[in-house]
């Protein structure tokens, strides 16, 4: 654990110097601004899809503490690798969605933590194939001390694809961002809203299982936290009602998600690193979101996660041959 945090920390510093050039950040955000504002019909198609992907199903996924930790390490690795390859934020997010969907369908034995690493590699590689113009070869995805061969990685890609039923076109919160920022900021969102919201969503990946909330709710909650961190339930309801088509958003879900992110955002602001400039530019925020996580991830493994740990004998375990 310590080792991996340490190496992740090193990688981070390197990525700060080498990879997080301003230009790259610009690219990473520019396509979000390219989204046209969704109309009601498009919103309906997207939100119908959310359900079909199994977001916000009735039973919440409960992971053992070991798996939780492994998941956090995987997310850390995914974020680092995203920065190293210059992938877009959506790619990182998408791969965590795949990871959570995979874990919710195919429980992994706590004894096989290495398998989660392998799954993470496959998820990021698949997300890159979906989203990126330049996709690195499998050999370029290196994770910690593990040396998985390309064949093994490809087999895991196939297993992930099959487990996800080949449905890789998951809805993500990013498609809704333009819509919500326009709606909640009365048609004139300040420049940095998108980047701050993206940073918040990326931070939230560690704290919430992505299968527990609909992407539209995550997008709405993050935009509202960026708008105002101290909204009451009534204020949230008022905001919600101000949207013409809001049938798909449920206030309880929004409230739950908003509260989680509210806490996150406050915690983040307590950290010295991220307040080096009062006016956070996309570049700085992007950097923050990537740099933050090693401390949070190790903290998360020791005490932050509140989910119960219990062994479920019924769960079929993951047995690689």
């Amino acid at each position: 654990m310590d080792d991996s945090s340490f190496s992740a920390g090193l990688l981070c510093q390197e990525s700060e110097q080498t990879f997080l050039e301003e230009e790259e950040e610009e690219d990473t955000f520019s396509d979000l601004k390219n989204h046209s504002v969704l109309d009601d019909e498009q919103l309906k198609i997207l939100t119908d899809k959310e359900i079909s992907f199994g977001f916000k199903s009735d039973k919440s996924l409960v992971l053992s503490q070991e798996i939780e930790c492994a998941r956090l390490e995987s997310i850390a690795w995914i974020l680092n690798t995203r920065a190293a390859f210059g992938f877009r934020f959506q790619t990182a997010y998408l791969s965590v969605t795949y990871l959570d969907r995979f874990l919710s369908r195919k429980p992994i034995d706590s004894e096989k933590l290495w398998a989660i690493k392998l799954v993470s590699v496959a998820c990021l590689s698949l997300a890159a194939k979906m989203e990126e113009i330049n996709v690195p070869a499998l050999t370029e995805f290196q994770i910690d001390e593990y040396d998985f061969g390309s064949n093994v990685k490809q087999r895991m890609e196939l297993l992930v694809l099959n487990t996800l039923n080949w449905r890789l076109r998951s809805v993500t919160p990013f498609v809704f961002l333009h819509y919500f920022s326009t709606k909640f900021f009365n048609d004139s969102p300040p420049n940095n809203v998108l980047s701050r919201t993206v940073a918040l969503i990326l931070n939230a990946m560690r704290e919430i299982n992505l299968m527990d909330h609909r992407p539209s709710i995550i997008a709405a909650a993050a935009t509202l936290v960026v708008l105002d961190q101290r909204l009451t339930r009534e204020a949230l309801e008022f905001k919600l009602n101000s949207i013409s088509y809001s049938g798909f958003l449920e206030i309880e879900d929004l409230l739950a998600c908003y509260s989680k992110m509210q806490k996150l955002d406050t915690e983040k602001l307590d950290m010295p690193k991220s307040v080096n400039s009062p006016d956070l530019s996309p570049t700085q925020l992007g950097r923050t979101s990537v740099l933050d996580y090693p401390s949070v991830s190790s903290a998360g493994c020791s005490n932050k996660r509140k989910r119960l740990t219990f062994e479920d004998d019924d769960q079929s375990t993951y047995k690689p041959k």
């Binding site: 590689s125 194939k129 979906m130 996709v135 196939l158 694809l161």
Partner: peptide, 11 residues
């Protein structure tokens, strides 16, 4: 070899 599952097939 080494590219994994083809992006064309996946898409």
């Amino acid at each position: 070899d080494g590219d994994g599952v083809s992006p064309t097939a996946i898409r």
